[in-house]
Structures are given as structure tokens and as C-alpha cells.
Design a protein around this nucleic acid. Structure first.
Length: 207
DNA sequence: AAATCACGCAACCGCAGTGAT
DNA sequence: TATCACTGCGGTTGCGTGATT
């Protein structure tokens, strides 16, 4: 891979200078091709590191600061439904990354809920507690936000498909909340979040 | 004031999936 | 069709910092 012949790779925390270099690169070339970004900028970081730094920290869509009660509540409920599918959960919480959600869960929420064992989600605690054999067959167009398959799959699909249409309606009449570059109507329409939240409610009573 | 501990966050690692050639 | 590069994800680790002793 890249970097193999590149002598020493820097590790650890990013410096301000590195951040600026990476941000400048993204400004000009856009996201993606992170390995090339690493080469092009001369950063002694590999592509994965550049990507992670951007996604988790530099991206303007990343919300900093403490999690709100609403976010906590949403995470708890989505985790109940989806298990440790952090990217999926984060995808439903505007401005939060999977890393943030994961950390927040492990540090705060798992304690709060008395979940035993770091990262462990008991098999029974999550309806969709992952495994490859499960049919995560429904894919959204833009990303791997697949939806677990089980008896509620169709319902969930309806929720999300309906949400998609509603999102278009909602977002077509309002300004994007965040920069267009990262704008995802699935995620950033507050009305949609409420809708999704309400729509999922019927799923919770089974748990 | 120094040492220790606990917590929180950022970053790394390994693997799997996907697309391009 | 096979291979490779790239991306994304979840789990884990390491470091910085504030609190406590």
C-alpha cells in the first residue's frame, strides 16, 4: 500500500499545520481519494488517517460539544434497534460521527443504562445485533446505510422510503442547514428526524 | 506540590465491501 | 474473472487532562 515505501509515517495527534494542509487540499480537490491526498499534500499520514481526520474532526458538518438529551435519547433507542451499528446510528443524528456516537455510548450511555462490558451488546438486547448472515439487503443510494432484515424490515423500509420522499419535500423548501458539500437531506431535515423518530416509535414497544 | 487515578476523546488497526482496471 | 486500490466500519488503544489523594 501507499506509505510502505515512504519512510516514516507520522502517527498520533494531528497538528494544526497538518489540519490546515488537509483542509486546503479538500477545499481544492474535494473529499475522497485520500491516499492521493496524502501523497499530494506531502503529509506523512496514510489515506485512512487523512480520511478519519476529515470525517471526525475537520469536516464542517461535524458538530462539537456535549450531546443533548434528545441526542442521548435517540442514540439509546437506535442502539436498541440497531445494536453497535454506529455509522447507521450516527447517520440519524445530524452532525455526529460514528466515532463520537460510539465514544459517547461507551463512556456515558452504557453506564447510564447499566450495560455490562465495554462494547458488548447482548445478543438479546438488540433486535438486529449484527451478523453478516443477517440480510442487510436494503441499501440507500448514497451510502451503506443498510437496513437490517427481520420481521420489521418492511415497516422500517416504509419508514425510510417515506422519509426520503418527505425529506425531498421538506428540504426543497428550506435552506440546507450545513454546507451543501456535505448536505444530506436524509440527515439534516429536523422535520424528518421527528418523523423518523415518531415512525420508529411503534417498533420500540416490542422491546 | 507531586503522584496517582479515572475519564473522555482522538486516532489506529484489521477486516470487509465495492469499484475500477 | 481476477486483482488491486480505495473506502468505510467496528473494535480497541493511547494520550491528554482534570480530579483526587
Amino acid at each position: 500500500m501507499e506509505g510502505a515505501g515512504n519512510g516514516e509515517q507520522r502517527k498520533g495527534l494531528w497538528t494544526v499545520e497538518e489540519d490546515i494542509i488537509l483542509m486546503d487540499y479538500v477545499k481544492v480537490h474535494g473529499k475522497g481519494k485520500w491516499n492521493r491526498a496524502a501523497k499530494f499534500t506531502g503529509l506523512k499520514r496514510d489515506g485512512k488517517s487523512c480520511r478519519l481526520r476529515w470525517m471526525n474532526y475537520l469536516s464542517p458538518s461535524v458538530k462539537r460539544g456535549a450531546f443533548s438529551e434528545e441526542e442521548d435519547d435517540l442514540i439509546i433507542r437506535l442502539h436498541k434497534l440497531l445494536g453497535n451499528r454506529w455509522s447507521l446510528i450516527a447517520g440519524r443524528i445530524p452532525g455526529r460521527t460514528d466515532n463520537q456516537v460510539k465514544n459517547h455510548w461507551n463512556i456515558h450511555l452504557s453506564k447510564k443504562l447499566g450495560v455490562k462490558g465495554k462494547y458488548k451488546v447482548s445478543d438479546s438486547s438488540s433486535e438486529f445485533s449484527k451478523k453478516p448472515e443477517a440480510d442487510f439487503s436494503i441499501k440507500s443510494s448514497s451510502n451503506d446505510r443498510s437496513i437490517p432484515s427481520n420481521k420489521t424490515e418492511a415497516e422500517l423500509q416504509n419508514v425510510l422510503e417515506g422519509s426520503h420522499e418527505k425529506a425531498k419535500e421538506i428540504t426543497s423548501t428550506q435552506e440546507p442547514i450545513l454546507t451543501s458539500d456535505f448536505y444530506d437531506p436524509y440527515l439534516y431535515a429536523p422535520s424528518l428526524m421527528e418523523l423518523l423518530d415518531e415512525s420508529l416509535d411503534f417498533l420500540w414497544h416490542d422491546f
